[in-house]
């Protein structure tokens, strides 16, 4: 597999033949097929994880455009790492580790943070009261998430935005399951305290 190869926009004959049943294949199988040149396999992976990765990135970063950029960069990184990928049944852990790292790097960018806050301020204009309250809640939520430590934030986002099990979170963050639970309960407690009666 050539990690910097061009993704074909026109399905090749081999691709069409091998794409049958892609939806039923595991993540690891799709990665191996993609490494073998089946473009549709990687497309299937993207579609399978798109909603959760975008949602996690959005909750982390608070802005759609940033979330889309980070999710895109995450899949590009995964694609370029195809030759090195080792199929051990832990694709989700690998994917979300890459995604969290990219979210974290983006979040640390003071410029990006400032833009996100500016965006939030701009977008509260010209909307009705119900929508305004909802947006305020979302903004407060983003702020509350941002106030968590990286350790707590990662766990709560992996649990609810990505829908990972305790075991998968433990693998992703390389911590024991007991620590996952403790951090999750701490994170929820802190979020509730930060949001108050909102």
């Amino acid at each position: 597999m050539d990690p910097s190869r061009r993704l074909s926009l026109v399905p090749r004959r081999a691709t069409l033949e091998q794409s049958v049943g892609l939806e039923a294949r595991s993540d690891d199988e799709l990665m191996l097929l993609a490494r073998g040149g089946v473009d549709a396999a990687f497309s299937s992976l993207i579609h399978r994880h798109q909603a959760r990765t975008l949602r996690l990135a959005l909750r982390y970063l608070g802005r759609e455009s940033l979330a889309a950029d980070v999710a895109q960069d995450t899949f590009v990184e995964v694609f370029r790492a195809l030759p090195q990928y080792q199929a051990r049944g832990k694709f989700s852990s690998y994917l979300y580790r890459v995604l969290l790292n990219r979210c974290h790097m983006t979040w640390r960018s003071a410029h990006a943070e400032q833009r996100a806050l500016q965006y939030a301020a701009e977008t509260v204009a010209e909307i009705d009261e119900v929508e305004l309250l909802l947006r305020e809640w979302r903004r407060d939520m983003t702020s509350a998430l941002g106030g968590l430590s990286e350790k707590l934030r990662s766990v709560v986002l992996l649990r609810y935005c990505a829908g990972l099990s305790y075991e998968e979170i433990a693998e992703t963050l390389e911590i024991p399951e007991g620590t996952v639970k403790r951090r999750l309960f701490d994170a929820l407690t802190k979020l509730r305290a930060a949001l108050g009666d909102a």
């Binding site: 993704l7 993207i46 909603a51 975008l54 895109q72 899949f75 590009v76 694609f79 709560v156």
Partner: peptide, 19 residues
């Protein structure tokens, strides 16, 4: 809230962006 779908992101063609 955390688990809710993000409607604003549903129109994003992530595959096209990655390609």
């Amino acid at each position: 809230h955390l688990a809710a779908p993000a409607p604003d992101l549903e129109t994003i063609d992530l595959e096209a962006r990655v390609r």
